[in-house]
Simulated assay, not measured.
Amino acid sequence: MAVTSKQPLGAAYSATQAISQAPKRKNLIAIFALAPALAVFLAFWLLPFSRLILMGAEADRSSGISAYFTILTHQQYLISLVTTVTVSFTVSLVAVGIAGIAGFFLARHRFIGKSVLVAILTFPLAFPGVVVGFLVIMLGGRQGALAQLSLWLFDERWMFAYSLAGLFIGYLYFSIPRVITTVMAACENLDQSLEEAARSLGANSWQVTKDVIVPGIAPALLSTGAICFATSMGAFGTAFTLGTRLSILPLNIYGEFTNYANFAMAAALSVVLGLITWVALSLARKLAGSNVGAPV
C-alpha cells in the first residue's frame, strides 16, 4: 500500500514541475526568435541614432553653439523645417482625399479592365524617387510637355518642376498608390450590412458615407496618411532630382554633411526629422486604434 500511495504523488509532482517549466521554455523560444531582430535593431538603428543624438548636441560650425539650439534660432533652418512639414502634411491630405475616393470606388465596383486600371494606378510604387523626379521634369521642366505646349500656344515656357509645386506633384505621385491599395483592402473588409441598415432607416447616400463608411475606414485612412507624411518627410531622391536649391530637410541634411562637413548640424536635423515622423506615426496609430469598431 505504501508503494502504491507514492506513485500518484510522484506523478503529480512531475506534472507540476512540467507546468512550472512551460513558461520558461516559452520565454527561451521567444528570446531565440527575437534575437536576430533585436541584434539588427541595436546594430543598425539604436547605436547609430544614439550617436546622432549626441553629435547633434555638439557645436555647430557656423554659429558655435549647440546645433539643436541653432535650428530654433536661425531662420533658414526654421523655414526648411516648416516647409518640409507643410508640404508633407498637404501631400498626405490631398493623397488621402483623392485616392480614398478612388480606392472606395474600385473596391465596390466590378467592370471590364479593372485589374489593368488598378495595376496602372499602383505602378508608381515600382519607381524610385529619382525616376519620379525625372518624370516630373518631363512634365513640368524646361523641355517638358507643359513647356512645349505653352511655348507653342503663348510663346512662353510654363514650368513648375524646379519649385515646391513640382516637389508636391512628385510626392503626390508616389503617395496615391499607397492610399489606394490600403483603402481598397479596408473597404473590402467593411461590413456592408451596416450600410444596408442605415439605408433601411432612411439615410441618404451622403449620410451613409459620413456616418458609416468614413468611420469604418478611418483607421486605414489615418494610418496610410501617416505613412504618406513620413515618406514625404524623408524623401530625398525626388527632391535631389528636381533641384538642390529647394529648402527642405533632406536636402539640407545632405548639404550640411557633404558640402560643409557640418556633421553636428546634419545630425541635429536628422534627429529632428526622425522625431517628427515618429510622433506623427505614433499619433496616427493611437487615433486609428481608438477608432477601430466605431461604426458598431
Rank of each mutant, 00 (worst) to 15 (best):
A261Y: 10
A261F: 09
N262I: 08
N262F: 02
N262E: 05
F263H: 05
F263S: 02
A264I: 01
A264K: 01
A264R: 01
A264Y: 00
A264S: 07
A264C: 08
M265N: 03
M265G: 05
A266S: 10
A266M: 04
A266L: 04
A266R: 00
A266G: 07
A266I: 02
A267Y: 00
A267L: 03
A267I: 06
A267S: 07
A268P: 01
A268F: 01
A268G: 05
A268M: 01
A268V: 06
L269C: 07
L269N: 03
L269E: 03
S270D: 06
S270H: 03
S270Q: 06
V271H: 02
V271Q: 03
V271I: 12
V272P: 00
V272Y: 00
V272C: 04
V272R: 00
L273W: 02
L273F: 06
L273S: 00
L273D: 02
G274T: 09
G274I: 06
G274C: 08
G274A: 09
L275K: 10
L275P: 07
L275W: 11
L275T: 13
L275D: 11
L275S: 14
L275F: 10
I276D: 04
I276E: 02
I276K: 06
I276G: 01
I276S: 05
I276N: 04
I276H: 02
I276W: 06
T277D: 03
W278L: 13
W278M: 15
W278Y: 13
W278H: 14
W278R: 15
V279L: 14
V279C: 14
V279E: 08
V279D: 07
V279Y: 07
A280V: 09
A280T: 05
A280I: 04
L281H: 04
L281A: 06
S282L: 15
L283D: 12
L283Y: 14
L283M: 14
L283P: 07
A284I: 01
A284Y: 00
R285C: 11
R285W: 08
K286W: 13
K286T: 13
K286H: 15
L287K: 08
L287Y: 12
L287F: 11
L287R: 08
L287C: 12
L287M: 13
A288V: 07
A288L: 09
A288S: 09
A288M: 05
A288C: 10
G289P: 09
G289I: 09
S290E: 14
S290L: 14
S290I: 13
S290W: 10
N291I: 14
N291S: 15
N291W: 13
